[in-house]
Nucleic acid binder design. Structure first.
Lengths: 166, 166
DNA sequence: TTATAATTTCAAAAACTAATGAAAGTTAAT
DNA sequence: ATTAACTTTCATTAGTTTTTGAAATTATAA
């Protein structure tokens, strides 16, 4: 495997990882391409490199910017936009967590709260009551932990892992 | 919202949560139904309750058993199989992690190792070399942490969260 | 062993998700 | 104000994943 092949493999792998984390394959590949690119790239260059259409490139660059994983920039004398990726992996993970928490965890907690409010829940179905309670407990804890994480500095991961493994 | 509506809402919510975690919607709904059911259910009852086909029910029950989230059982005098869900949420999460780790993290680490082996990686592309290195570091750490977690007892979550938040 | 109840398989259909590309909309330099 | 470079939108098309249901297989009771 040479450098070029390595880059291609990386882009494709990051695409797979992303799609397992609720980030569409192309979105993750655009991010990967920008991650390993020394200089900012234009939409045109991204299209060319990944062999994707203009619309597709635009949509996914946009989504990456929304997630805070990619930044928009300009080069002096050039009219078009140039894009760079967030390269600090701690930040990348934090930003993914922010999105997933918002999209998944928060709505789930809200629903569990609504269900818990059902009259006579525990009286009428013990199993149901217990499951709802357990999941609520766990997800509330997860929610609080993730909040801490999001607020923490970039070295958080390292230190937490050490704490966890210790 | 009454008990019946609550149960339906729970099944549908758990389906959504699951599909965000690489578990197909129906598979998660079958799990949810078994979670909140006081007694073991037969395939027939699951089909009826969730309004799904025999094939679909079978496939997803099978997958849940493979993941260790559902257990197969028998009732005396009955020929058909009855199913129960793993109800300990700590165990549920552990089992999901085992699957996702195997499917995602391990192949990624393998690929990153292959890429790292590329001759002159760091000499020829600094950005690429750094990114690969960073992700490798992080994912190896995650891998080890998850191994610890999988081996740990069910109260691990509680204690770890307390450690994290402290 | 035979009949039959239950489970499994899998090709085809349906449902869902992502990508294309042409047209519409913006923006900025002249 | 006009034009040309660039970006965004979105209806259509392509690709992927899930579900169905009927047929094949397996297991049990008589």
């Amino acid at each position: 495997m040479n450098l070029q092949e390595g880059k291609e493999k990386f882009i494709s792998t990051w695409g797979t990882v992303g799609s397992n984390w609720g980030i569409n394959r192309t979105m993750a590949q655009v991010h990967a391409l920008l991650l390993i690119s020394n200089d900012p790239l234009s939409a045109e260059e991204i299209m060319e490199e990944l062999q994707i259409s203009r619309g597709n490139a635009n949509m996914n660059i946009r989504a990456l910017i929304d997630w805070g994983l990619v930044y928009k920039g300009h080069k002096p004398g050039e009219r078009k936009e140039f894009f760079t990726a967030e390269k600090d992996m701690g930040e990348v993970i934090k930003k993914v967590i922010v999105q997933r928490k918002k999209k998944e965890l928060e709505p789930m907690i809200k629903t569990l709260d609504e269900i818990s409010a059902v009259e006579g829940l525990c009286k009428d179905s013990e199993a149901f009551c217990k499951v709802v309670h357990d999941i609520k407990l766990f997800s509330t804890k997860a929610d609080k932990t993730l909040d801490q994480l999001i607020r923490s500095d970039s070295n958080w991961f390292l230190s937490t892992f050490l704490k966890m493994i210790k």
